[in-house]
């Protein structure tokens, strides 16, 4: 079991959270080619790395953003999603 240190709730079990995928900036629907759109929807570099991810805390219904390494599983940062999301994510 992993534990997460939440900015306001303190130490919580990771099992309270649901994984919501990595944070990815959506491609502009207007100016996108077919290939670019398909790449946005389907293709990515899935190699191990530290990435920003969506995690949903079910008991409170709040989305968080974790900075997590997909090789070591270490979580280095936890933010409220509505504060932590930058537009250039």
């Amino acid at each position: 079991m992993k534990f997460v240190t939440c900015p306001s709730l303190g130490r919580r079990a990771l099992s309270e959270f649901t994984f919501g995928g990595r944070v990815e900036k959506e491609t502009d629907q207007e100016a996108v080619s077919e290939r670019e759109w398909a790449e946005y929807v389907f293709y990515h570099n899935g190699a191990p790395k530290t990435q920003q991810e969506w995690w949903y805390h079910r008991p409170t219904g709040i989305w968080f953003l974790f900075q997590r390494n997909t090789l070591t599983d270490s979580i280095t940062q936890v933010d409220f999603a509505n504060k932590g999301l930058t537009n250039d994510a």
Binding site: E39, H44, G46, A47
Partner: peptide, 14 residues
């Protein structure tokens, strides 16, 4: 993905 990354090939694999 560790291999495809060497060739900068993107795939849908997670």
């Amino acid at each position: 993905p560790r291999i495809t990354e060497m060739l900068e090939i993107e795939t849908p694999i997670e």
